[in-house]
């Protein structure tokens, strides 16, 4: 793995976020170095998905700041500014969320053509290369409904990569998959991390987190309860709540 440089590309500082009355994030802070891999673990409902969506500018925050590359995410107001951010940060979802009326190849090609306004010929070549990279060159003309969950998720990863993002966000991308297909998706992510892609992963795959992460954050109730390198957090958790959670999932 290439040495992660020290300059943080993502800086999340004291982020508060609420849906109406309910405060979902209650002051979350962490940083990710360029090329770094950070895993976020924690019980369901602790605000992990919301945190990723804040970083992607999909939901506004009420307090604190988020900086990604050169963007102050919390200050983006117009759609145009948000679109500029989303060229740098790409998100992969638990339910794949492919466009069901487009083939695998079209799914990968759409955003570069319509958002980046690149030439279709060039995009096509790149999209085929990306599908090859995730092992799905043979499936380029299949519709999402004709693909297995693991295959759909790999197309979704290729679709995100086609935007040439600086940062990739993964939200429990293996949680909806059969155990056999989890591995093919994790291998794809591992490959990306090894190439130096900055990744923030929300995951329940503790063994994978231990293997791949530079740092693991354990969240509960809208706060980061404990942060440490994986070996330390998994083997010697300092906080009781972390220990209790880990004893349940390991």
């Amino acid at each position: 793995m290439p040495e992660a440089s020290t300059r943080p590309i993502v800086v999340v500082d004291d982020v508060h976020q609420s849906f109406g009355e309910v405060e979902v994030l209650k002051g979350v802070s962490f940083t990710v170095a360029k090329g770094g891999v950070v895993c976020i673990i924690g019980p369901s409902g602790s605000g992990k998905s919301t945190l990723l969506r804040c970083i992607n500018g999909l939901v506004p925050i009420q307090r604190g700041s988020i900086r990604v590359a050169s963007f102050d995410v919390h200050a983006l107001r117009t759609d145009k500014e948000k679109i500029a951010l989303r060229k740098e940060v790409s998100m992969v979802f638990q339910q794949y969320n492919l466009f069901p009326h487009k083939t695998a190849l079209q799914n990968v090609m759409m955003a570069p053509i319509h958002v980046l306004r690149e030439k279709p010929d060039e995009v096509r070549a790149r999209a085929i290369a990306l599908l090859t990279k995730v092992g799905l060159a043979a499936k380029q003309d299949a519709y999402p409904g004709e693909l297995s969950g693991g295959q759909q998720q790999r197309v979704a990863i290729a679709r995100s990569l086609a935007m040439r993002p600086e940062v990739m966000l993964f939200d429990e991308v293996t949680a909806a998959l059969d155990p056999e297909t989890v591995k093919e998706v994790l291998n794809t992510i591992r490959g990306l991390a090894q190439e130096g892609m900055t990744c923030i992963l929300v995951t329940h795959e503790m063994r994978f987190a231990r293997e791949i992460a530079d740092e693991v954050h354990f969240t509960d109730g809208g706060r980061i309860v404990e942060s440490a390198p994986p070996a330390e957090l998994f083997d010697h958790p300092k906080v009781d709540r972390t220990r209790a959670f880990l004893s349940q999932v390991l």
């Binding site: 989303r86 339910q95 466009f99 955003a111 935007m163």
Partner: peptide
């Protein structure tokens, strides 16, 4: 149309109209 499909399009940088 699932809300999450729309969110995926937004996250890829599609404008509202697109």
């Amino acid at each position: 149309v699932p809300r999450t499909t729309i969110e995926a399009a937004e996250s890829l940088g599609f404008s509202r109209l697109q």
